[in-house]
């Protein structure tokens, strides 16, 4: 199977083993710009590994990953890091905000890693914090804000570089349903408005309901439900 035409990020026949455990065993994936795809499946099925491979954090043992016409697995670590800095955004379940930095500094961090001057980076960060309704937290540190607020700060940070692909790994996992839904609403709205693709790893149906379609990962193999039906 080849990547569907027009896909921004596509993976074929991915295999990845951690020691004796086979995390991915021939997984496939593709996503178009502006699309939100939920990756579902039981825990331990390889969802997170698939996300890490797609984001170039982990290199698969075999298989190809194509991003925007370029072969991701052929890139050097430095190139992939640079790609992650400039074209990808990340939201994780927890533990991702630097506890010592203030919220606005956390949001500005990816820009600063790209070499944007501090003032400018923080101005851009503030714009995104306003969109995610957390601009009043700018001077606070992550330890002083609630989980939902922290997660919105994290979403702001993932979007601040204007990424083309947003990777979200259980972004609402640590939140109650009201906060979780609010975060999902803001995240998908923001992504759609910038035409970013969102790879959303979740095991919650109500979170997955914010996606356009879902794929299911089971025992390291993926299943694209849209094509099956």
């Amino acid at each position: 199977m080849t990547a569907p035409a027009g896909s921004l990020l596509a993976a074929e026949r991915l295999r990845k083993a951690y020691g004796p455990t086979l995390a991915l065993d021939g997984a496939e994936f593709s996503i178009h710009p502006g699309e939100v795809v939920a990756v579902m499946g039981p825990s331990g099925s390889g969802k997170s590994t698939l996300l890490h491979c797609l984001a170039g954090i982990v290199t698969p043992d075999s298989g190809t990953i194509t991003y925007d016409g370029r072969e991701l697995s052929a890139m050097s670590d430095a190139r992939r890091s640079a790609l992650r800095r400039s074209e990808f955004g990340f939201v994780f379940q927890f533990g991702q905000l630097v506890p010592e930095l203030t919220c606005v500094e956390n949001v500005a961090l990816p820009l600063r890693l790209n070499g944007t001057p501090r003032k400018e980076a923080e101005r851009a960060a503030l714009t995104w914090m306003e969109r995610l309704e957390v601009d009043d937290l700018r001077r606070k540190r992550p330890g002083e804000v609630s989980g939902g607020q922290g997660q919105r700060v994290a979403v702001a940070r993932s979007l601040v570089t204007g990424p083309r692909v947003l990777f979200a790994d259980e972004p609402t996992g640590a939140l109650d349903s009201l906060n979780g839904e609010r975060v999902m609403e803001l995240l998908t709205d923001a992504a759609r408005s910038t035409n970013a693709a969102v790879v959303l790893v979740t095991h919650e149906a109500r979170v997955a309901a914010y996606s356009d379609r879902e794929i299911v990962v089971r025992d390291g193999r993926s299943r694209d439900m849209e094509r099956v039906v």
Binding site: A78, S81, F88, F90, F92, V98, P110, L113, R157, S158
Partner: peptide, 16 residues
């Protein structure tokens, strides 16, 4: 550990 990994995820250089 977790924080470091997430910093690496969004492309922080090891040097940094």
């Amino acid at each position: 550990r977790k924080l470091l990994s997430s910093l690496v995820a969004f492309g922080t250089r090891r040097r940094t």
